[in-house]
């Protein structure tokens, strides 16, 4: 009883970590531009697929990971530069549709460049599970959770302790005022896409040994990450992390206790209910601002 419960919690936290990273990616771009970047899932896919190919070419895993992250960031920069930036004056809805188009385009390229098959990476440190109270925890899960924690702490440091990070926050709070203190707000937008691509790639790489990857992986992961971000309150970093974990754990419980056929539905149903009663999400903006 306890063993299976614990087992579901482990798998929920593992996959929830990826949703959290993906949700953070949505939030960062949303904050910088109010655009919901539906190509966020494709960053996850590109990170995983690029690592797989590089490893297949004989590149050592750590180098392959680094190169794959860099490649994904380049895709992120290109997406901003060539698809979003030229349409900057268009409405936010138009920009969102552009990102949907970009996601389809990226999937098409991935299908051509690679193929439609599933690919896998070896676990980073073996596949000998740890047994905890009868539940088994794979070492790769620890990698996923550990890397996610490091990334979240790193982001927290960047946004709360560095002037560059605060300038990005300031741009999201008040773009005009940010320009007037000398922040290059165009560069902030570019940075936000690069940063979100990096988060996506990292998530895609660490999860690939567990879930495998193919050109379509990004669709579902992206939607779940989006749900995580909305659940926590779009634009709220902590909210995206908590939202990710809630979606991940709920999904794992549903799959474990009911049927894995309902897994995806459960996540979206929770979100519907939360949004009925708390339209701005769990950690949505509170009214502390006085004008």
């Amino acid at each position: 009883m306890l063993a299976s419960f614990l087992q579901f919690v482990f798998s929920g936290i593992t996959v929830g970590s990826i949703y959290a990273l993906c949700g953070l990616g949505f939030s960062i771009i949303f904050n910088a531009s109010h655009v919901i970047n539906f190509a966020q899932g494709e960053f996850i896919m590109i990170g995983g697929m690029a690592t797989v190919s590089l490893v297949a070419l004989g590149v050592p895993l750590p180098v392959a990971i680094l190169l794959a992250i860099l490649a994904t960031m380049l895709v992120g920069f290109a997406l901003e530069k060539f698809a979003v930036e030229p349409a900057r004056k268009a409405s936010v809805t138009t920009l969102i549709i552009i990102t949907i188009g970009a996601s389809i385009f990226l999937r098409g390229i991935a299908q051509e460049l690679w193929d439609k098959n599933f690919h896998k990476l070896p676990p980073f440190s073996g596949d000998q599970p740890f047994l905890i109270a009868g539940a088994s925890l794979m070492p790769q899960s620890l990698w996923v959770i550990g890397v996610t924690v490091v990334v979240i702490v790193g982001l927290g440091w960047f946004f709360n302790r560095t002037l560059e990070g605060k300038a990005m926050l300031a741009t999201s709070f008040n773009t005009l005022a940010a320009q007037l203190v000398g922040v290059n707000t165009k560069k902030v937008l570019l940075m936000s896409f690069g940063l979100s691509a990096m988060l996506g790639a990292i998530g895609g790489i660490v999860i690939t040994p567990i879930t495998f990857t193919n050109y379509e992986t990004g669709i579902m992961l992206g939607l779940k990450g989006f749900s995580a971000a909305v659940l926590g309150g779009l634009g709220n970093g902590m909210g995206a992390v908590v939202g990710g974990l809630i979606v991940g754990i709920a999904e794992a419980m549903a799959a474990g206790y009911f049927s894995s056929a309902y897994k995806d539905a459960v996540a979206f149903i929770i979100i519907l209910f939360v949004l009925f009663f708390m339209p701005s999400g769990l950690f949505g903006k509170s009214g502390t601002e006085r004008v």
């Binding site: 002037l163 300031a170 008040n174 005009l176 007037l180 203190v181 922040v183 502390t288 004008v291």
Partner: peptide, 29 residues
């Protein structure tokens, strides 16, 4: 942003402070 570096600073109409950031962070920015 380059004009700020050149030495022009504007205090915009309606203050436009970075509401959620601390007073000191506003100044540092």
């Amino acid at each position: 942003d380059k004009r700020v570096a050149a030495g022009i600073a504007q205090v915009p109409e309606g203050r436009q402070v970075f509401g959620p950031l601390s007073v000191e962070d506003n100044l540092r920015l």
